[in-house]
């Protein structure tokens, strides 16, 4: 449900979960408005929060076209009908999606303790390890980043320590660097009926993992290609921007 009412409801729940608002205060604000939500200080507060989320670029609003059927209501009837209710929906922006991806990734990997050495950032300290790869004999086509020490040592071993030192082609050695490659990843997301079988939602957790994985790949491995595929009776490519709003 992407209606504004659903958003207000979710906001209220989030505020209460984070102890920013308690049940008592909610009742108080409603009571000030004769128990009605519409026009209450609570509605005003939630609207202000939605405005802030929009200003900061996390969400956008769009107005859906009112159904044709409703527009035709009262056709040929000169009397003025009641104004139709506005059908405003919200959408998560790319910034919002990026933020959710980051948070989901942090939650998935955030419970790391200190175990073996890896690449995940932790609050702990460790000694640095910088692997210096051995140099190799120069071959045509190699980048000429000469390892001068090994080159001279090779010449000395062959010719003995004398001046002038005669360098042969086979003496040349070059530094080796880590070779980094890019890779392509396709994430396949199952949205078949079994994902919501027996009323249990297995799709949302899977979607969160996909979102976190997408965030990890996009931020840690620039140059990688990432595509999402949604499969059910058939399969189709899913744009990353649509991931958050995809449902079974």
């Amino acid at each position: 449900d992407t209606s504004l009412d659903a958003l207000r409801q979710a906001l209220l729940q989030a505020l209460m979960d984070q102890d920013l608002l308690d049940e008592h205060r909610v009742q108080e604000m409603l009571a000030e408005n004769e128990g009605k939500f519409k026009g209450s200080a609570l509605e005003e507060m939630l609207n202000q929060l939605i405005e802030r989320l929009i200003e900061e670029g996390y969400l956008t609003l769009r107005e859906e076209q009112v159904r044709q059927q409703q527009q035709q209501r009262g056709n040929g009837n000169p009397e003025i009908s009641e104004p139709l209710p506005r059908n405003v929906k919200f959408e998560v922006t790319e910034k919002g999606l990026d933020f959710l991806g980051y948070k989901t990734l942090r939650n998935l990997l955030g419970s790391l303790g200190k175990s073996s050495f890896g690449r995940h950032d932790t609050p702990q300290l460790s000694t640095g390890v910088e692997a210096a790869a051995a140099s190799k004999a120069y071959e045509f086509g190699d980048t000429i980043n000469l390892d001068v020490n090994t080159t001279l040592l090779s010449a000395i071993q062959r010719e003995g320590l004398k001046m002038p030192l005669n360098l042969e082609y086979s003496d040349l050695h070059v530094h080796q660097c880590d070779y980094q490659s890019s890779c392509a990843t396709v994430v396949m997301l199952d949205c078949s009926h079994s994902m919501i079988l027996y009323g249990e939602d297995r799709f949302t957790p899977a979607k969160k993992v996909a979102l976190a994985l997408a965030h990890l790949i996009r931020t840690q491995y620039p140059g990688d290609a990432l595509k999402l595929v949604l499969f059910h009776d058939s399969a189709e490519e899913l744009p990353l921007a649509k991931l958050a709003t995809t449902q079974v």
Binding site: L49, V92, K207
Partner: peptide, 20 residues
């Protein structure tokens, strides 16, 4: 006070609703 609420924390609290 609405302006004192951290939007990042709020978005995190909203994530379950926004993603489901």
């Amino acid at each position: 006070d609405v302006s004192s609420i951290n939007l990042g924390d709020l978005m995190e609290g909203l994530s379950d609703s926004l993603l489901s």
